[in-house]
């Protein structure tokens, strides 16, 4: 494995870690979504690096996986944003309130 690959790997790990940290720390849904995208970015970077092929041509399978993964990440994010918008309209909030448990047994229809 060449040194540049190591840099990429480290970067991937750091990006994933930042994403995970942010996801667990943040209460804002939008931030959480961004963090999930960051984590995804980290994984894609990892895949590309691992498929880099130090000697010889790069492995096409991880490339295909990343392409598919990006498509999925985009659509998931789009849907999540739409849902967030709906949530914002309903309650004028961009957080999933911590007191959600209080009305676990209520029925609001």
């Amino acid at each position: 494995m060449n040194p540049s690959a190591l840099i990429y790997l480290l970067t991937a790990a750091i990006v994933f870690g930042i994403g995970l940290h942010g996801l667990l720390q943040s209460r804002q849904i939008l931030r959480q979504l961004l963090c999930i995208n960051l984590m995804g970015g980290g994984i894609f970077l990892l895949l590309i690096t691992l498929g880099g092929g130090a000697d010889g041509p790069p492995d096409p399978v991880p490339q295909a996986m990343v392409l598919t993964g990006i498509v999925i990440a985009v659509s998931a994010t789009a849907f999540a944003l739409a849902l967030l918008l709906r949530w914002h309209e309903l309650g004028d909030s961009t957080e999933l309130d911590a007191v959600a448990n209080a009305d676990a047994n209520t029925h609001d229809e």
């Binding site: 996801l23 849904i29 959480q32 979504l33 999930i36 998931a76 849907f79 999540a80 849902l83 967030l84 709906r86 949530w87 309903l90 309650g91 999933l96 959600a100 009305d103 209520t106 029925h107 609001d108």
Partner: peptide, 12 residues
């Protein structure tokens, strides 16, 4: 509201 909240949590 309940449904959207549950969906959002599930999605994340």
């Amino acid at each position: 509201k309940t449904a959207v909240r549950a969906a959002m949590r599930y999605l994340l």
